[in-house]
Design a protein around this nucleic acid. Structure first.
Lengths: 163, 163
DNA sequence: ATAGTAACTATGATAATCATAGTAACAAGA
DNA sequence: TCTTGTTACTATGATTATCATAGTTACTAT
């Protein structure tokens, strides 16, 4: 893209986060990190993004303090990427995207009756549907409270990608 | 950009919405629509985006069923853009972005003590902070339940943009 | 007749992304 | 030792999206 107006100093909170989150690659990488994929190659394979793009975006995420680069072995040097507290706090955004998609983005029956990704509340075991408050116990749902289970179709797709 | 893998048929719900929402211009336009800016020129002025980009993105949003184009007068032909039910349901995503920014994206004191955008619960009048459930009455917060008031700095910035 | 407004479209320069290939640093097996 | 494999990237050239600026269409108002 050409030079564009930088929004990181706007006073609008949506504008500020749009500078980071208004990017397809960033969203896909964050999704993978939330699912526990920490290694460069795993993220590149599952997202389908090229290595330069993964590299560039991870650098940006590290610079923003959303992700940290961590050496998990010395010889040979190997690194993994982890969400920081600031990064984990983006869960609400990704979860809201998932909820919207479950409600609007699938044709009837496309996912085989259930959601593409089923979430259950760890504390009480209830299926939370697309809610932000547990429909069973009424608690607010945060990162870590939920357990996600991909549908059979999604599992097959991920396996085909090698992720 | 070059041709890229289309994610609109992935089974991953985040991937599906990332195809639409992983775009800075789309997020900014949606933000403006949520704030009641319905006219082309008002959106272009406030977002700072060029008219071709606004035009292209509005067309895409209309094609996706998120926005509808509505003629508000015949002579001369004038149109405005409105969020559909599907579009209004994206509120949770934008609100989650706002909440994250309020918590992480501002230097201490940058917004003058309060949030960049203050939201109060219409039903009970309470300041909701960055919560998804009203801290006063415990109700889940949806689109329409909240009343937003920009900070002085944000108001000044919007006025300077002509939006 | 001239200026103004709203909602765009056209043009050329610039910059981001992609596919593909290559590099660096090592480990393991033949 | 030589070859192959793994992880984490970087380099290159073609393609395509975005930007700034200017122009267009269809009117109304003075």
């Amino acid at each position: 893209m050409p030079k564009r107006a930088d929004l990181s100093d706007t006073y609008c909170p949506v504008g500020r986060s749009a500078e980071l989150l208004g990017d397809r690659a960033v969203l896909l990488i964050l999704r993978d990190l939330f699912f526990g994929r920490r290694r460069f190659e795993a993220i590149a394979a599952n997202t389908g993004l090229g290595p330069q793009l993964v590299s560039a975006r991870l650098k940006r995420l590290v610079a923003e303090g959303v992700v940290e680069r961590h050496a998990y072995q010395e010889r040979p040097p190997r690194h993994e990427y982890r969400l920081t507290a600031k990064g984990k706090d983006l869960f609400d955004v990704l979860y809201a995207m998932r909820n919207w998609s479950e409600r609007w983005a699938y044709a009837p029956g496309e996912t085989g009756g259930g959601p593409a990704m089923r979430y259950t509340h760890r504390a009480c075991g209830a299926d939370v549907g697309t809610a932000t408050i547990c429909p069973n116990c009424g608690e607010a749902l945060r990162y870590g409270d939920l357990k996600g289970e991909p549908s059979a179709a999604l599992k097959a797709e991920q396996a085909a990608r090698g992720g």
